[in-house]
């Protein structure tokens, strides 16, 4: 299976005038990432850019910058985390000290900064992180799997909220005031993505 959309010419934003104003505003804003950060340092942002690219399997800047915006806002805000495992550091700390540990590990292992590593080495480090095996004993107090999960969740929830990605996967997007009428298996409403595979 190749990395190809079944719906190359579908653009969910073409229907945006059909959406309520509040939703229109929210989704349109995602197309204009700010790239100015309140919580993240420049260095962290640069690292996250690579990490998000790895996690999503997509390096397009317009998408990655939107993810960084989302991460920055989430970490900057005082909104709670929903839940945190007993003993785990708070999200802000986890991210900050986690990225630092990842950078140092990269320096120790490869004598290169994380952002200078080739894709394969980056992938390897992230895989190890997801298995609690990336950091040496000095930094073992950082829950690596929790860190990986936090990065993954924040990255994916933003990436899959971007209208460009919605179009590629053929998601119908916001649906109000217009709902769905033709809902039998195999039926499509006229504005839904039409598969274009041969």
């Amino acid at each position: 299976m190749s990395k190809r959309s079944h719906y190359p010419s579908y653009d969910v934003m073409k229907a945006k005038d059909e959406w309520d104003d509040h939703t229109q505003q929210i989704v349109s804003k995602r197309l204009e990432p700010t790239a100015s950060y309140s919580f993240l340092t420049k260095k962290e942002a640069a690292m996250l850019q690579q990490i998000c690219g790895q996690l999503t399997g997509d390096e397009r800047e317009s998408l990655i910058f939107y993810i960084l915006d989302h991460m920055d806002q989430t970490l900057h805000s005082s909104i709670g985390e929903g839940q945190r495992k007993v003993g785990a550091p708070k999200a802000k700390e986890l991210l900050r000290s986690g990225l630092e540990a990842l950078e140092q590990t990269s320096q120790e292992k490869y004598e290169l900064s994380f952002v200078q590593l080739d894709k394969k080495a980056q992938q390897q480090l992230l895989t190890q992180l997801s298995k609690e095996q990336a950091f040496t004993s000095k930094r073992s107090s950082i829950p690596q799997k929790e860190l990986f999960k936090k990065l993954l969740t924040m990255t994916l929830e933003a990436y899959y909220s971007h209208p460009l990605v919605w179009s590629e996967i053929g998601y119908g997007g916001p649906a109000y005031p217009r709902g769905y009428v033709r809902t039998q298996l195999g039926q499509l409403d006229p504005w839904e993505a039409q598969p274009e595979d041969e």
Partner: peptide
Amino acid sequence: LWGDRLRETMLNYN
């Protein structure tokens, strides 16, 4: 599940 494999899977979301 992440990276290329995730993206391929998600392209089949429907």
